[in-house]
């Protein structure tokens, strides 16, 4: 392409829209910074992205996940206070994927808050969920400012890499949890800095849409019965006994945990559940993955192929649940067993 210029805005508006729709998300974002009118144009295209992730990991990282294209990441300098009312000297822009590409942009004269708002407003979010991720070893002081930026419903990640969290990490994890709990309906949490229990403030009796709990080493049957979550994944570091699972399923059949749609429990393999105990006294029907695949939703996904056994049970009101069992899997270098209960 020669070096001359191309007066885009002298084209008819429908042609401009068509050209903009042909662009990749990254170039659309770059164009949106050209002027206020350009921002309006991009917004009016109603382009879809999957979700928007805000991450505090020493720097501020904003990531836009798209449905079919590569994710786009913006990385900004962040001071210890987490002051978002300042500008970052440069902005590192990356197209994520196998062959990652990185570009340097100027800060466009905008503060971090202004960047956050600008990127958030450009596209429609298909997930309608803003993901916020904190790392306990990279604390940010000004959590109140961050919370004020976020929508009412968020997906909160509290990540820890250190298996032995120190006091500072514990305090920071607690602060993050308490600050963002009112907005969180999805929670991904590593319990290392929380003394490996879920006896956290306001955790139980809360309406969770999704929980992913790692490093849980104390969990009673009562905790499971009090759980009010649609979907839960528990990575247990201890044996949640087959007897307790049997009791839980019997109570579920009588009507407990009515919102439960998915319960996924992962254990160290030496404590794999014994199916004869888990289903003792419960009318069940052994089924096959092929049969289940004819059903909708999760059953059509490929991961169920790896399960050893599956059983159908029914609640007293006729609601179907399928129990999947896998006695051994090697995940991240660890041997684990898995039990999944999917309610139809």
């Amino acid at each position: 392409m020669s070096n001359s210029k191309f007066p885009l805005l002298n084209l008819p508006s429908e042609v401009i829209d068509r050209a903009l729709k042909s662009m990749d998300r990254l170039e659309l974002i770059a164009y949106s910074f050209a002027s206020k009118n350009a921002t309006k144009q991009v917004k009016s295209l109603n382009v879809l992205i999957q979700c928007f992730v805000t991450e505090f990991a020493g720097s501020l990282i904003l990531t836009l996940h798209t449905v079919s294209a590569r994710a786009i990441q913006f990385r900004f300098d962040l001071d210890q206070d987490g002051n978002l009312n300042r500008t970052s000297e440069n902005v590192e822009v990356s197209l994520l994927g196998v062959a990652e590409e990185t570009f340097k942009w100027t800060n466009q004269g905008k503060t971090l808050i202004e960047w956050f708002h600008h990127l958030n407003q450009l596209f429609k979010h298909s997930a309608r969920m803003s993901i916020v991720r904190f790392h306990t070893n990279q604390p940010v002081a000004n959590l109140g400012d961050i919370r004020s930026l976020l929508p009412k419903r968020i997906c909160l990640y509290i990540s820890t890499y250190n298996p032995e969290a120190d006091d500072n990490e514990k305090k920071y994890a607690q602060r993050v949890y308490e600050e963002f709990l009112p907005n969180a309906t999805y929670l991904y949490i590593n319990l290392n800095p929380f003394n490996n229990t879920i006896y956290l403030k306001d955790f139980r009796f809360r309406n969770w849409d999704f929980l992913d709990i790692t490093q849980l080493n104390h969990f009673r049957l009562e905790d499971l019965l009090e759980l009010n979550a649609k979907q839960s994944i528990f990575r247990l570091s201890f044996n949640f006994s087959s007897v307790n699972l049997n009791r839980f399923m019997k109570l579920w059949r009588k009507g407990s945990n009515p919102r439960l749609a998915v319960l996924w429990m992962k254990y160290p393999s030496r404590t794999a559940p014994d199916v004869n105990v888990v289903l003792k006294g419960i009318p069940y029907h052994r089924t096959t993955v092929d049969e289940l695949k004819k059903m909708h939703g999760y059953y059509s996904e490929s991961w169920i192929d790896s399960f050893d056994d599956c059983f159908k049970i029914h609640r007293n009101d006729g609601t179907l649940a399928v129990i999947f069992l896998k006695l051994f899997a090697r995940v991240g270098g660890l041997d684990e067993a898995q039990l999944i209960m999917l309610v139809a």
Binding site: K5, F6, R18, S22, D24, E27, F33, A34
Partner: peptide, 30 residues
């Protein structure tokens, strides 16, 4: 043909920064 042309227009700014796009497409400032 309009679809091809629009793709070609979009390709002009592939990998460009906001400032470069402003210049190539002659976008007026606010």
């Amino acid at each position: 043909l309009l679809t091809y042309c629009c793709k070609q227009v979009a390709m002009m700014v592939k990998g460009k920064s906001p400032e470069e796009i402003r210049e190539i497409w002659m976008i007026p400032t606010d």
